[in-house]
Nucleic acid binder design. Structure first.
Length: 479
RNA sequence: CGGGGCGUAGCGCAGACCGGUAGCGCACCGCGUUUGGGACGCGGGGGUCGGCGGUUCAAGUCCGCCCGCCCCGACCA
């Protein structure tokens, strides 16, 4: 079964994606090029993502704060690689209140600099460390080519910024937060990500080492779904963040930063959606269960609605996010399609037959058509739907993982790598030479996605130059 | 910034080649019949045709300039 009006996922993935975002009412185009409005349904999804992450941040000892949107231009210039990386995409304010500003203000593209400045004021002693602050906010990057959620001029995200006394501690923090992201992606969003290290050419501007969670989208392209950076002392030196250690020696701190954005909504759409529309993982879905009453006259209506009200109350009290769709101006069939487009994981249909039999119809979004439909007793419904939502969540992760693994191949030679990355990921030995990486990019548009943390034993020959290689890496075309 | 496409009602489009005072589908409003997989009938409301200028008795249509958006490439979470 598929939506006759929706572009096909297989034939035109890009168009399919755009239509889902608009029709499921996640977002809409704004009047400014490259900007979007996040609609209530999309924002509700983001709020659930925020909660799932924020809980994990708090559990790992972090606190939230808010730093300014405007950053003095000179701050950006203090870290060489950072300014080189970001200057092409800065939005800069030169006039305020009708007056030309003494110093232009940058609309933050990320906040390492202004936070570094503040940390230098706050951190004086080893007793002040570590500083573990996160902020939820928005940033602006003037991208050439934009796409709803994946790359917009303004986007919403969280950015964590931490300062530590030792390199080891900062490196641990970097990996701790990468684990938090991976745990969130896998267990909340059912997006099976791969944790790894970015190559030199792909790392964050100003980082010593960038780590990433990489996900495979439904068109087999890769998406960087979250990053965690070890910044070494680069920003500490640029902003003079120094403390006195326990030997009364002045030391620079070691910092990290890590971020995950509304882009992740794009990852969810492109991982799970089908030709019928969006499919949301139960743990993040703004509406987990939609109840569709079915009746054809007033007497049926009152009988049906009595059951609908009773069961929806029962389910809400059991902690589920439930919506009843009482619209009378559209038919049940229309509603089925409508909620399937919006990706609601579970639908409950209640009609005269169910009133009679004391049953309800359950329809799983992840299993389309009649196969996913079952009639179950009204008694014990909360337990049953709870189990079913868990099963849906698990099945979504299994399907996405199977799809990913099916589309990762190990090329025997360079020619095979070239073929594989046209429509999948290649997992291959790489000597680490940027020239080999650049050649692959030049000839195939595929980049190194990450050097996975989990490495096979032993060593091999670089897939490009045949020199000795001691690490395997994923090559793929990316968003 | 290069290549392509498009701008006409809220959305999707026709009308343009061949100039004559704007139409279709969906959505919306009203009434009635419908309702277990995208209902139907009848009646209705809604448009400075992206903007500016030019040609003409007359411009959605022809000419010029500008603006915007989407898609494809180089850059990126």
């Amino acid at each position: 079964m598929s939506d006759e009006n929706l572009a096909s996922r297989r034939d035109n993935f890009a168009e399919w994606y755009n239509q889902i975002v608009l029709r499921a009412e996640l977002a809409d185009y704004a009047p400014v090029r490259g900007c979007m409005v996040v609609l209530p349904y999309g924002w509700a999804l983001w709020e659930n993502i925020q909660q799932a992450l924020d809980r994990r941040f708090k559990e790992t000892g972090h606190v939230n704060a808010a730093f300014p949107l405007f950053i003095p231009m000179s701050f950006l210039e203090k870290e060489k690689e950072h300014v080189e990386g970001f200057s092409p995409e800065l939005a800069i304010v030169t006039i305020g209140g009708g007056e030309k500003l003494e110093e232009p203000l940058v609309v933050r593209p990320t906040s390492e600099t202004i936070i570094g400045y503040m940390y230098s004021k706050w951190i004086k002693s080893y007793r002040d460390l570590p500083v573990l602050i996160n902020q939820w906010g928005n940033v602006v990057r003037w991208e050439m080519r934009t796409k709803l959620f994946l790359r917009t001029l303004e986007f919403y995200w969280q950015e964590g910024h931490t300062a530590h006394a030792t390199a080891e501690e900062a490196r641990e923090e970097t990996l701790r937060m990468l684990d938090v992201y991976a745990d969130f992606a896998i267990n909340e969003a059912a997006v099976p990500v791969i944790k790894g290290i970015k190559s030199e050419s792909e790392k964050f501007a100003g980082a010593v080492q960038s780590t990433t969670i990489e996900a495979m989208m439904g068109d087999r392209r890769a998406l960087q779904a979250g990053t965690s950076h070890f910044l070494g002392q680069n920003f500490a030196r640029a902003f003079d963040i120094q403390y006195l250690d326990w030997h009364n020696q002045l030391q620079y701190v070691w910092t990290t930063s890590w971020g995950l954005s509304t882009r992740f909504i794009g990852a969810i759409i492109m991982t799970h959606g089908d030709d019928q529309g969006l499919i949301l993982p139960p743990r993040l879905a703004p509406i987990q269960i939609v109840i569709t009453p079915i009746y054809k006259n007033d007497s049926e209506k009152s009988a049906v609605m009595a059951v609908v009200d009773r069961l929806s109350t029962e389910l809400k009290e059991a902690g589920f996010r439930v919506k009843v769709d009482p619209r009378e101006e559209v038919t049940p069939g229309f509603k089925f399609n409508d909620w399937e487009m919006r990706g609601v994981p579970l639908r409950i249909e209640i009609g005269p037959r169910d009133v009679q039999n004391e049953t309800v119809a359950l329809a799983r979004r992840d299993i389309p058509g009649k196969t996913g439909k079952s009639f179950v007793p009204q008694t014990g419904l909360a337990n049953r739907v709870g189990e079913m939502l868990k099963a849906i969540q698990q099945s979504m992760l299994e399907n996405a993982t199977a799809f990913r693994d099916k589309n990762i191949h190990e090329p025997r030679d360079y020619a095979e790598l070239k073929e594989i990355v046209q429509d999948g990921w290649a997992f291959a030995w790489w000597c680490g030479d940027p020239a080999c990486e650049a050649r692959v990019k030049e000839e195939t548009k595929a980049t190194t996605r990450c050097i996975p943390l989990e490495q096979p034993k032993g060593s091999g020959k670089c897939i490009v130059c045949s020199e000795k290689a001691d690490q395997k890496v994923y090559f793929a075309r990316a968003y």
